[in-house]
């Protein structure tokens, strides 16, 4: 039964692919979710993603320890996000325009300092072999899960808890949802947004580390294919709920894995078309979730795109 076998192959490849492809989406969307909950949008996370990938790879190569690379990526993300946060708290600075500038700056810095690291190979993060009991190599490979994916899922639940039951989390939501209320309560609006943006970008930086240290697991200039920007759409789709970000990331991941999976069974027709699946999903998601003249459920009230 070759047909059935191919379908099984595709399914396994897509499962494996979606676990891999989804992880950067997950981290960037969690970071973006945190930032947007504070009432600000950060399109610069695409730049943070690329910078994070470069820094993680470089630091892993220099120190020999990929985990130090992950930490360095988070730190680099925090710095770049912090810059965005500081710039946006100045009067009359538009966060969307600033985000685009940060995105270009981030990728530019990464390409500039990353040149010497394109050739050498750095130690990568090992995956956890959940499929050790299986015989088939194919399945074992599929269940080789990166520790960063598990960390991302844990971060999603952590962020959900943080936003519901901690003072800091509720303050972020107040600042993001009603500036009037925040002023009346005497909350430091700019500082809260700065911290939320910096921490959100730290998460996005970890997403970059996944790209260079797990999958595809190398550093070059074409590493990111717009995951940082698609994550913004993903947060809309997830209705600003961290748990939903996990499901949405897996969906986007599966769409991203569609092209490569079809290739594994030798299906070559419309190769580029299937590689475009994540972008098509982004478009469909944005169209499906927007209704003319109506507000989006769950959207923080102070978000500049919603006002």
């Amino acid at each position: 039964m070759p047909a059935l076998d191919s379908i099984a192959t595709i399914a396994v490849a897509m499962l494996a692919g979606s676990l891999r492809v989804s992880t950067p989406f997950l981290f960037v969307s969690l970071g973006e979710c945190l930032t947007e909950k504070s009432g600000r949008i950060n399109l610069g996370n695409e730049g943070v993603l690329v910078l994070g990938a470069m820094v993680a790879y470089a630091v892993s190569f220099e120190t020999g320890n990929p985990w130090v690379g992950v930490l360095a990526a988070a730190f680099a993300g925090m710095l770049l996000g912090g810059l965005h946060g500081v710039m946006c708290s100045l009067a009359r600075v538009n966060d969307v325009a600033m985000g685009i500038a940060i995105m270009l700056a981030g990728t530019g810095i990464a390409f500039y300092f990353g040149k010497p690291y394109v050739q050498p190979s750095a130690p990568l993060l090992p995956g956890i072999p959940f499929g050790f009991w299986l015989e088939s190599d194919r399945f074992r490979n599929a269940l080789l899960v990166s520790p960063l994916f598990l960390l991302g899922v844990a971060a999603a639940f952590g962020l959900h808890w943080f936003l519901r039951t901690t003072r800091a989390g509720l303050r972020i939501r107040i600042v993001g949802d009603s500036q009037d209320a925040a002023l009346a309560l005497g909350l430091p609006i700019d500082r809260t947004r700065l911290l939320a943006t910096a921490c959100g970008s730290a998460l996005a930086g970890i997403g970059g580390a996944f790209l260079s240290l797990c999958y595809p697991g190398s550093w070059n200039e074409g590493l990111s294919s717009g995951q940082g920007l698609m994550a913004v759409a993903l947060v809309v789709f997830a209705r600003w709920n961290p748990i939903n970000c996990v499901y949405a990331s897996l969906l986007f991941g599966a769409a991203g894995a569609l092209g490569p999976s079809l290739q594994t069974v030798g299906f070559t027709w419309g190769y580029y078309l299937f590689y475009a699946a994540p972008y098509a999903v982004t478009l469909i998601v944005l169209i499906a979730t927007s209704h003319g003249g109506r507000s989006l459920r769950g959207m923080p009230g102070q978000l500049s795109i919603g006002r």
């Binding site: 509720l170 939501r173 107040i174 949802d177 009603s178 209320a181 009346a184 309560l185 923080p300 009230g301």
Partner: peptide, 18 residues
Amino acid sequence: YQHFTLVPSMTVAENLVM
């Protein structure tokens, strides 16, 4: 205030405690 300072996405309990 005339313009309410409740946070619309948060529950009454969350608003009171915060």
